[in-house]
Design a protein around this nucleic acid. Structure first.
Ligand SMILES: [Mn+2]
Ligand SMILES: [Mn+2]
Ligand SMILES: [Zn+2]
Ligand SMILES: [Zn+2]
Lengths: 138, 138
DNA sequence: ACAATAAATGCACTTCCTTTGCATTGATTA
DNA sequence: TAATCAATGCAAAGGAAGTGCATTTATTGT
């Protein structure tokens, strides 16, 4: 079991107190978070630092960005071996219209999508909206 | 063949000069447009009027909104018989990473997406990104 | 045709999120 | 220890979405 410090270093990211805190926050949350979610969870956290930290994490494939249609970009930790760049690896995301939370359905890959001749598919974003398991009451 | 005036009236929308212009602009464009695209295509057009016009069109199912992941909402005319509210009718959208344009692939419906037990799917947004037919050069 | 009424438009302003510039602090290396 | 580079914090800019209100334009009833 790798420590967080080791993980960050293995990705070429310097370990800082802030980065450890943000990473820890992401592991504890089971849902995709907005920048403001992180901001509100810390007393003295600067938006800019959060922003740049999450961008660093994104570049190094530690988190991936999620556009769930709310207009606010969210982020979630990549699973072990999550190759977000590879189309065939892409999982789908679920946005709950009730509790407004967005989760990664890591086990559910996006099916192969046929596009017309002449079009080249490089990437697919699929968001399902509805009622999540917590809110559907079973 | 219905005139634009007749179409608008049949949907319960009053005909105005601005609305005709905007509708015409949408028919001529073969791609999804941003509010600012419309704004820039007219000399003396107020953002608010465009905004409210497009919202009116949206309510009356004349256009549908497209979230292609660029962070800017786009709009495109609904095809004849496009029931945007019905999940099974939803077509997919293609965003070109080269020319940055987004098109409706009206003929290509979104396949049935399986979600885990407890989750209820009400709506699906699917955007394919890649290279469009114009840009792929064939 | 005219007055009364309602809808559409234009202007100004607000809010929210994202992004950048720059000075400062902190860590790393020679 | 000095020089160098990365991370942080503050401030401000930018872009898009949305709202309030006064004005113009269209519709309706007399
Ligand atoms: Mn995910
Ligand atoms: Mn469409
Ligand atoms: Zn929920
Ligand atoms: Zn293209």
């Amino acid at each position: 079991m790798k420590t967080i410090e080791e993980l960050l270093e293995s990705k070429g990211i310097r370990v800082t107190a802030m980065r450890l805190l943000i990473y820890k926050f992401l592991t504890e949350k089971q849902v995709a978070v907005r920048l403001s979610d992180i901001e509100n969870s810390f007393d003295k956290a600067d938006r800019t630092t959060l922003y740049r930290t999450i961008k660093t994490f994104e570049e190094k494939d530690i988190v991936h960005q999620i556009d769930d249609g709310t207009g606010i970009t969210k982020y979630a930790l990549c699973e072990k071996g999550c190759n977000c760049e590879i189309e065939t690896d892409l999982h789908l995301h679920f946005h709950c219209n009730n509790c407004n939370e967005t989760v990664c359905l890591t086990e559910h890959k996006i099916p192969q999508i046929k596009v017309p001749d002449g079009f080249v598919s490089e990437n697919v974003n699929l968001v399902v909206k509805g009622i999540c398991d917590k809110c559907s009451g079973q």
